[in-house]
């Protein structure tokens, strides 16, 4: 993929983000109640102080101006101060973001390895007992409430067996949360991979590869996998959304600090600048990841390069 095409993709993100952020802005205006009262969260205030606070928040300006300044601030990552801690939202997010990223990557790794393995094993010999076993496992993964399985994992492997810590900053504290996030991802990915492998295994080029004298392992690992990974890859963007969802829930279960926990807390405390900041940030990251996947797609499948 040429640099020009990549730049084109990146620029194409702008109108999309404009629409999503406009939606966020609109949603935030729909919150009932005066923003200043929300900010004060019950503390009494004099009329003059009220006016000053309104001016400081900028809510006394016309809606159009507020909208423009929201977009301008969002573009540079400024979301104002938290109602609760009075700290800049950006600072709060920046502090929690690495924790969530860590968890997302761990979950992604578990999900992709487990999902691909199950899918390939099922798809190479469809309708056999291995297939049934793998696909039932995948469906279990899709049906398990991640908060429930997370608690069970803690109960069994941390509390009872004591194999891994629940809290802490070491990599071993990341194992159980990653499995929790990864399980759900693996279920969907396994199903996609299976269908894709079945389709690819019936293609003529697989027959050619076998006719050349390659071992079965090579035929599957090289020709089938490379081709079969293309459709699941296009859906990886959606998978990433699941990853975010998984992280939000898992952080709460494991009492891990992170964006998800921050978000849930902010919603419960009506801390709207934080909610707004996190939503704007996650949509931005999500859109960016999808563009990156698009680009990766061009590298794996030479046919889309032109």
């Amino acid at each position: 993929m040429s640099a020009r095409a990549i730049l084109g993709r990146l620029l194409g993100v702008i109108p999309t983000l404009l629409i999503t952020w406009t939606f966020v802005f609109g949603a935030m205006r729909l919150v009932p109640g005066d923003p200043v009262l929300l900010m004060l969260q019950g503390t009494p205030i004099s009329d003059s102080a009220m006016e000053a606070a309104r001016a400081k928040l900028g809510v006394d300006r016309p809606l159009v101006v507020q909208y423009a300044s929201f977009l301008a601030n969002a573009a540079v990552g400024d979301f104002g101060d938290s109602f609760r801690s009075r700290q800049p939202v950006t600072k709060l997010i920046a502090a929690e973001f690495p924790k969530t990223l860590e968890l997302a990557l761990g979950g992604f790794l578990v999900g992709v390895v487990l999902g691909t393995t199950l899918g390939v094993m099922a798809g190479v010999r469809p309708n056999g007992w291995v297939d049934t076993l793998c696909m039932t496992t995948a469906l279990v993964g899709l049906s398990l409430p991640s908060f429930w399985i997370g608690m069970i994992l803690i109960q069994v492997f941390a509390t009872q067996l004591g194999w891994v810590p629940v809290l802490g900053s070491g990599w071993d504290a990341l194992i159980l949360p990653s499995i929790t996030v990864g399980l759900f991802l693996a279920g969907g990915l396994a199903r996609l991979t299976r269908n894709s492998i079945i389709e690819v295994m019936g293609q003529d080029y697989i027959r050619t590869a076998r006719a050349k004298g390659l071992t079965t392992v090579r035929v599957v690992a090289k020709h089938a996998m490379r081709n079969a990974m293309i459709p699941p890859l296009t859906l990886l963007g959606i998978q990433f959304a699941l990853l975010i969802g998984g992280a939000v829930v898992t952080e709460t279960v494991f009492a891990r600090p992170g964006i998800g926990k921050l978000l849930v807390q902010a919603v419960l405390e009506k801390d709207f600048p934080v909610v707004q900041g996190i939503v704007v940030l996650t949509t931005g990251v999500y859109v960016l990841i999808n563009v990156l996947i698009d680009i990766a797609y061009g590298i794996i499948d030479p046919r889309v390069q032109e």
């Binding site: 109108p15 983000l17 959304a241 975010i244 969802g245 939000v248 829930v249 978000l263 999500y286 859109v287």
Partner: peptide
């Protein structure tokens, strides 16, 4: 553009 909201984020919003 709306699909750019991860569903859980949109729901929480």
């Amino acid at each position: 553009a709306m699909l750019c909201f991860p569903p859980i984020i949109l729901a929480i919003l």
